[in-house]
Design a protein around this nucleic acid. Structure first.
Length: 599
DNA sequence: TTCGTGTACCTTAATGCTCA
DNA sequence: TGAGCATTAAGGTACACGAA
């Protein structure tokens, strides 16, 4: 149902939040693990949830080595890969059964993450995974650190006894809880002599893998070669930011002590932190990470008394490594059908908006896609993506574009500035990571009665715009997106998946570090301190007993209607650039607690 | 044996305060 | 106003310990 917002009816989906879990980017993960050459060629990347990157803190003894951390990332990637295989199997089975009896769509409200892996139905997932021993050993031995079963067992033992705290709220997890990283061990079949590494993830951690949100794409190849225990911890934080859209990506600015605390470095002096942690970590990241480069700067603090002023702020600026120019890439031959599909005219797109057959062929050769695609597939997906922008409509069942995706006005601007070929290549590279735009034009069934209301002015390309103006426009666009999300117009993601309710995504809208709030903060008198407090309060939870199951669960401390109304007011003020109104609303939330709010 | 990690000690640099 | 002193933190070197 459209919602009235400042006199205009709008329907949008949240651009930041993804409503499904992306898969591991690897042609064949097992082959990549077994062979160093395959690892270098495939360079598998796995999406790690932002929560797992930012909110985890090791509790107690921290004797994990760089190899241990690499193995942990491997296990996370493996679990995700296995979950996806099972999910695809489930989808095929559902399709088969759907042909026999028409399903009642509203009855299919089962949790995706539990059904994928055969969980208990309450979000708890209890699967045990097994990876061939030789594959794990080969991966752990990428830099010659682990060779024997005893050495591998030592790694697994350290991982199994390490406990972490996730400082997040969730419907099933209390933020003061502590869980093991994982449980793991070696298992040998005495009859066949075959050995596997078995592991299981704690249910809460496993559940995070399939939750909607933002992701940091981590390169397993790089992880396997890190030798410094802190490199992987710093790398994940940088990779998370490096994956953001060019227009919203800001440098990571953080106090040295805070960063040290976050990555588990015992603070003594800055020079020790730099020497033993930052320098080796940055060297290794530069040497092994393919996706981005890091520029590191120190900022001295203001003199506050006697003595030499120390380093007050660290600034890490990430830039994509090697933005590839399509004309510099070799062009392979193409099948007759692929070439015809690429050259075919389009009812909506102009010839200037269609990539050449050569561009499609280059994308197929030089971009690593998660699944086998043909040129005809890519051409079709591109037309659907541009069509979506031109119509100004996002299908209700489509997942929201991620920060990595090239979409919206940026896509049109890229076509105009760089040409269809280069724009297509950049779009294909991003889509290979997210999979967001791999769908058909027939999915774009637009209800004409509301279509004219959904074409945000911000989608029109503008000239002479400064980066700040562009960022402001992007923030306002995201604010409009939130309005659509709050209106409950995210009906379904895919056939058979459960309904996405506004309350499912409200938490992602309360993220102060993302647009529009990151930009809004810059305009507020207190630099967004009050807004941060307000959004934090909206994320607070309290524990209550479930009326049916009797189990304790965490529920939002602030009522859903009040959270929704507050967010709507905030984004409405943001769209009008009424910063004082944003500040007043934030103050009202902080100082005037209402229903169920403990403050 | 090599290398990562942590610690200790000394020197150097930067800044503010005091006083002639 | 400038020299000298006090204070604080970085830079550099060396060494011990333990994991790989």
């Amino acid at each position: 149902m459209p919602v009235i917002d400042n006199g205009a009816q709008v329907i949008i989906v949240k651009s930041k939040a993804r409503s499904y879990a992306p898969g591991v980017q690897a042609e064949n993960l097992l082959n990549a693990l077994r062979s160093k050459e395959e690892m270098d060629r495939q360079n598998p990347r796995h999406p790690k949830p932002r929560t797992m990157i930012e909110k985890v803190q090791i509790v107690g003894k921290d004797d994990l080595t760089a190899t241990d951390a690499a193995l942990y990332e491997l296990f996370i990637a493996w679990a995700r890969d296995e979950d996806h295989k099972r999910a695809r199997g489930r989808e095929r089975a559902e399709k088969a059964s759907a042909s026999k009896a028409e399903r009642k769509r509203d009855d299919l409200d089962f949790p995706r993450d539990a059904s994928v892996v055969g969980g208990t139905g309450d979000g708890a997932v209890t699967d045990i995974y097994a990876i061939p021993y030789d594959a794990v050993r080969a991966y752990a031995n990428l830099h010659g650190a682990v060779d024997t079963p005893e050495q591998l067992l030592s790694c697994l033992n350290r991982l199994s006894r390490t406990t972490v705290r996730y400082n997040v709220r969730d419907e099933t997890f209390r933020n003061r809880g502590v869980v093991n990283l994982l449980n793991s061990g070696l298992k040998t079949n005495e009859a066949t002599g075959k050995t596997v590494v078995e592991f299981s993830l704690p249910p809460y951690v496993h559940g995070l893998l399939s939750k909607p949100g933002s992701w940091g794409y981590l390169e397993l190849r790089a992880f396997g070669r890190f030798r410094n225990k802190y490199t992987g911890r710093l790398y994940q934080r940088l990779a998370l930011i490096a994956g953001y859209d060019n227009h919203v990506r800001k440098p990571l600015e953080i106090e040295p002590r805070k960063l040290a605390e976050e990555i588990g470095f015992k603070w003594t002096r800055y020079v020790d932190f730099k020497r033993n942690c930052l320098n080796p970590a940055l060297e290794e990241i530069e040497k092994w990470v393919e996706r981005f480069l890091v520029d590191f700067k120190e900022e001295k603090g203001a003199a506050s008394g006697r003595g030499r002023p120390g380093v007050a702020l660290l600034r890490f600026t990430m830039t994509p490594r090697g933005d590839r120019k399509i004309v510099e890439l070799s062009a392979p031959s193409m099948t007759w059908s692929d070439a015809n599909a690429a050259k075919a005219g389009d009812k909506v797109l102009t010839p200037d908006q269609l990539p050449s057959a050569g561009a499609v062929a280059r994308a197929l050769k030089h971009i690593r896609f998660p699944h086998a695609l043909t040129g005809a597939d890519l051409s079709e997906f591109w037309r659907a993506a541009v069509d979506e922008v031109l119509e100004g409509f996002t299908p209700s069942h489509a997942p929201a574009p991620g920060m990595v995706d090239v979409h919206g006005e940026r896509l049109l601007a890229s076509i105009e500035m760089d040409g269809a070929d280069q724009a297509f290549f950049a779009w294909a590279e991003a889509s290979a990571l997210t999979g967001r735009f791999f769908r058909r034009t027939e999915d774009l069934s637009i209800p004409r009665d509301i279509c004219h209301l959904m074409h945000p002015k911000s989608l029109e390309p503008t000239e002479g715009e400064t980066p700040d103006q562009r960022r402001l426009r992007y923030a306002k666009d995201t604010a409009a997106t939130i309005v659509w999300g709050l209106a409950g117009l995210l009906k379904r993601r895919m056939p058979g998946e459960r309904t996405v309710l506004p309350e499912d995504v409200i938490d992602t809208y309360c993220d102060i570090d993302t647009l529009p709030w990151s930009l809004v903060s810059e305009h507020l008198p207190d630099k967004g301190a009050m807004l941060r407090r307000a959004l934090t309060m909206m994320l607070k939870t309290r524990i209550e007993r479930h009326p049916k199951t009797g189990r304790n669960r965490a529920v939002p401390a602030m009522g859903i209607e009040r959270r929704r109304a507050t967010l709507r007011n905030l984004v409405s003020a943001t769209r009008k650039e009424n910063w004082s109104a944003v500040h007043r609303i934030a103050c009202a939330v902080v100082h005037a607690p209402g229903d169920n709010c403990p403050f």
